[in-house]
């Protein structure tokens, strides 16, 4: 399970970083989303991985899953959601204003037309 989770985080993060480095806004937004997924899994794993353990403190011994990382992930998801919504709205605005979805708003298409 540890291996799968670690690989998931690695794949999500590297895909996110690769997409952030693209020149169009849509891939960049996708990249930011993937990166935040990677972060969320990473935060979750920081409470260590347990199976079949009580959420806070159960009757049996001291074994329990740490609830704090789950609260952190929840907060991070909510914030990430708001940010993604904002950046999508902003890139749509940039698209309508600058006439293309290049991250620097370059008017390549118009130039070719002229």
């Amino acid at each position: 399970m540890e291996i799968i989770l670690a690989l998931m985080i690695a794949v999500l993060t590297s895909a996110g970083i690769f997409l952030i480095l693209q020149t169009r806004t849509y891939p960049v937004v996708l990249g930011l989303t993937l990166l935040s997924y990677g972060v969320n899994l990473f935060l979750f794993a920081m409470g260590r991985l347990h199976i079949d353990k009580a959420a806070i403190l159960g009757d049996n011994e001291n074994a329990y899953t740490d609830p704090l990382p789950q609260a952190l992930v929840l907060t991070a998801i909510v914030i990430g959601f708001a940010m993604t919504a904002f950046v999508i709205a902003l890139s749509l605005k940039a698209y309508s204003k600058l006439g293309n979805d290049h991250i620097d708003g370059m008017h390549t298409k118009k130039r070719r037309e002229r």
Partner: peptide, 22 residues
């Protein structure tokens, strides 16, 4: 757009750091 994207990337790094410390 530049400002928002670079700060969003920064926020992800912040969470990675916080997670590691925790």
């Amino acid at each position: 757009l530049h400002y928002v994207i670079i700060n969003l990337a920064g926020s992800s790094l912040f969470l990675f750091a916080v997670g590691t410390l925790y």
